[in-house]
Simulated assay, not measured.
Amino acid sequence: MKIAIDAMGGDNAPDAIVAGTVLAARENPAVTLVLVGDENAIKRCLGQDAPRNIEVVHTTEVIEAEDEPVRAVRRKKDASMVVAARMVKEGQADGVVSAGNTGALMAAGLLVVGRIRDIDRPALASVWPTMGGKAMLVLDVGANMDAEANHLYQYALMANVYAKVVLGMPEPRIGLLNVGSEPGKGDKLRKEAYGLLENGPFRFAGNIEAREALNDRCDVLVADGFTGNNMLKLIEGFGLGLFDQLKRIFLANTLSKLAAAVLKPGLTAFKKRFDYTEYGGAPLLGIDGAVIKAHGSSNDRAFQMAITQAIRFLDGNVLEQIRTDLTKTTETV
């Protein structure tokens, strides 16, 4: 197994990316990890004691956060992200992991790696923690702003496989994000999608309201990219604001500081439950290769977990299982 790593993508590249790759390489000695990017910068970060299962491929360009995604992928042929994606397309690597420009990675997945046959549109999936401490897979969180009912059905089909293989859920409950829990609720898209999902080859949990999404009502939450992305950003913003307010309250005076000291173990455990570094990256499902988007501000631990997610994706033959389920569905129809 060989995985290409975009060493130059992300807020903390290349230092955190290389450090996370080293951690993953030592934990998975049978997997070859290829750091793609500026060779001098990468070797400076690697130092003298680099694991033997790390290779370096030199590139001369970088896709920046402010670059227009499609234009950057087409024009910057020697960008670290583009070269890493091309390695997957040409069979030189089995997957790619990047913490860089999300739009550019999606464009590279589509334009360079290509889609799985019979998948109309890929979906960006994200693992969210729930109040009960379990993980929930949510898609699409931004790959496509517009969607049709059959796209949401395909999202559910792919997510069902991913949740089983990578997240270890024996029989994932698939929910549809909607404005009400009763059948027949929602707009035309949600109504049509409900009809497809309730007859799908997976365990359909029905409509899920946003206020119930984090209360362990489902294991996979399906949405169009516009809705999913807005919900993701709302939760991220609320979480950051919540912890900031708690910090202000507990540091307000001596009495509150004493209370904080007593509550610290519980608060630390609560914060860790919602720590993105423990959940790895977001897979771009529907692309004909393992394409994992790590958080843009990933530290070494977060990036290590994103690589681990790519390894599980490949070990579990997720792509083959998705193709098999697609074939069964097509034959049934």
Score class of each variant (00 low, 15 high):
Leu105Gly: 13
Met106Gly: 13
Ala107Lys: 03
Gly109Cys: 09
Leu110Met: 12
Leu110Lys: 03
Leu110Cys: 07
Leu111Tyr: 12
Leu111Ser: 08
Leu111Asn: 10
Val112Met: 07
Val113Ser: 12
Gly114Phe: 04
Gly114Ser: 09
Arg115Gly: 05
Arg115Gln: 08
Arg117Trp: 13
Ile119Asp: 15
Asp120Pro: 02
Asp120Ile: 08
Asp120Cys: 09
Arg121Cys: 14
Pro122Met: 06
Ser126Gly: 02
Ser126Glu: 09
Val127Asn: 05
Trp128Ile: 00
Pro129Lys: 01
Thr130Val: 04
Met131His: 03
Gly132Arg: 00
Gly133Phe: 04
Gly133Gln: 06
Lys134His: 13
Val138Ser: 09
Val138Pro: 03
Leu139Ala: 12
Leu139Met: 08
Asp140Ala: 08
Val141Gln: 08
Ala143Arg: 05
Asn144Ile: 09
Asn144Met: 10
Met145Ile: 11
Asp146Cys: 06
Asp146Ala: 11
Ala147Val: 08
Glu148Ser: 11
Glu148Gln: 15
Ala149Glu: 15
Ala149Trp: 05
Asn150Ala: 13
His151Thr: 09
Leu152Glu: 15
Gln154Lys: 01
Ala156Met: 06
Leu157Tyr: 01
Asn160His: 05
Val161Ser: 07
Tyr162Arg: 00
Ala163Gln: 04
Lys164Ser: 11
Val165Phe: 00
Val166Phe: 04
Leu167Lys: 01
Leu167Trp: 04
Gly168Pro: 00
Pro170Phe: 07
Pro170Tyr: 11
Glu171Pro: 05
Glu171Asn: 15
Glu171Arg: 11
Pro172Thr: 08
Pro172Ala: 13
Arg173Gln: 14
Arg173Met: 11
Ile174Val: 14
Ile174Gly: 04
Gly175Asn: 09
Gly175Asp: 13
Gly175Cys: 10
Leu176Asp: 15
Asn178Ala: 12
Val179Asp: 12
Val179His: 04
Val179Ile: 14
Gly180Glu: 15
Ser181Trp: 05
Glu182Asn: 06
Pro183Gln: 06
Pro183Phe: 07
Pro183Asn: 11
Pro183Met: 10
Gly184Gln: 05
Gly184Asp: 12
Asp187Gln: 07
Asp187Gly: 11
Asp187Lys: 05
Asp187Thr: 04
Lys188Pro: 00
Arg190Gln: 11
Lys191Ser: 08
Glu192Trp: 00
Glu192Leu: 01
Ala193His: 04
Leu196His: 03
Leu197Asn: 10
Leu197Cys: 10
Glu198Leu: 05
